[in-house]
């Protein structure tokens, strides 16, 4: 037996018996960050590949979502702070050693192209929506926004600069979107004190998962057959990479120090086993992959089903990782 009992008052519920400081808001923040990274990544990537006219949804319409969910993510982050009124301190300091700091900065910086890009394409997006869903209420809203912003000379000037340098901006934004995706994992992996998170694979894993949720959303939104096929294929590839990373992560943990072995056991027999393998791996990765394969093989399956599953799987993955990480710790005896 090796037991530790607190005999003095340290029954601070968010710390004892296990850390429960970060929860839903942080998980959602990471999810939205990854999803936005995926959307922005594809828009810029396919723009650079010269697909502006064939992949309208991906390049021009879907990026409207990115700034909205980044903003929601930032609001969630600030709402989750305990000392909320001091949140501006976050933007007075740049601390490269603190993922929380450079992540908040990355989100802020990427917000600029994330807003300008879809605004610039707004007239074309409105056309696109008019063709597919002429009754959509969004048309009125977007037209109003479009007319409103184009009154200002400064915005027209920004559009001009944007147009001239769009290639360069797209390269930079593509790069930023990768940083954003990796950041959602590094925010967690920077904590040595939580052995489950403290693995270098978490950055690439969260990036892949984020980009895969982005692809899923594009599959869902698009009704261009070619676009859907392309993203289904891409998503299959991303799911395979993700599965590989997940297996790799647990292999690394099994071969690690005792703290890491125990962290891995949370998912390999411990309390998170069922929920992780069933929800994240089964329903969120393998099942949608099978559906996508069947669909690519010619079977008629509503495209939104695998897309929805991938999105929910990504969300569940972040909730589980945030929660489980706070269960793993060093033995302090």
């Amino acid at each position: 037996m090796n037991e530790q009992i607190f005999v003095s008052g340290k029954n601070i519920p968010e710390i004892i018996p296990n850390l429960e400081l970060w929860g839903g808001p942080i998980a959602l923040y990471l999810f939205f960050g990854g999803l936005a990274a995926g959307i922005i990544f594809f828009a810029n990537y396919f723009y650079l590949r010269g697909r502006s006219n064939t992949m309208v949804m991906t390049i021009k319409v879907a990026p409207i979502i990115a700034p909205i969910i980044i903003a929601i993510g930032l609001i969630l982050l600030v709402a989750d702070l305990n000392h909320k009124l001091y949140f501006w301190q976050l933007f007075l300091h740049i601390r490269m050693n603190s993922p929380m700091s450079w992540g908040a900065w990355t989100l802020t910086v990427i917000m600029i192209p994330a807003i300008v890009w879809p605004l610039y394409y707004l007239p074309e997006s409105i056309e696109y929506i008019k063709q597919r869903a002429p009754k959509s209420k969004l048309i009125g809203l977007f037209s109003w926004i479009n007319n409103f912003v184009r009154q200002f000379k400064i915005i027209l000037w920004i559009f001009k600069v944007f147009e001239k340098n769009q290639k360069l901006i797209a390269y930079l934004t593509l790069y930023l979107s990768v940083i954003l995706g990796v950041y959602t994992g590094i925010l967690l992996s920077a904590f040595n004190a939580r052995p489950l998170w403290n693995t270098a694979i978490l950055g690439p894993l969260f990036l892949t998962s984020g980009i895969s949720t982005g692809a899923a959303l594009l599959i869902w939104l698009s009704n261009d057959h070619k676009e859907i096929k392309k993203f289904s294929r891409l998503d299959l590839f991303l799911i395979a990479v993700e599965l590989f990373f997940i297996i790799h992560m647990f292999m690394g943990m099994k071969a690690g120090s005792i703290a890491q072995v125990e962290a891995g056991l949370l998912f390999l027999g411990g309390p998170y086993t069922a929920v992780f393998w069933v929800t994240v791996v089964g329903l969120g990765l393998i099942f949608p992959a099978i559906l996508e394969i069947m669909e690519l093989g010619g079977l008629k399956i509503s495209v939104w089903i695998p897309a929805f599953l991938v999105l929910m799987g990504g969300l569940a993955f972040r909730f589980i990782m945030v929660s489980a990480g706070q269960f793993s710790s060093y033995h302090i005896i």
Binding site: L19, L21, N82, Q89, L90, F191, A193
Partner: peptide, 8 residues
């Protein structure tokens, strides 16, 4: 700002 990073 009470972000809790240090606690983690």
């Amino acid at each position: 700002i009470g972000c809790g990073a240090c606690i983690e």
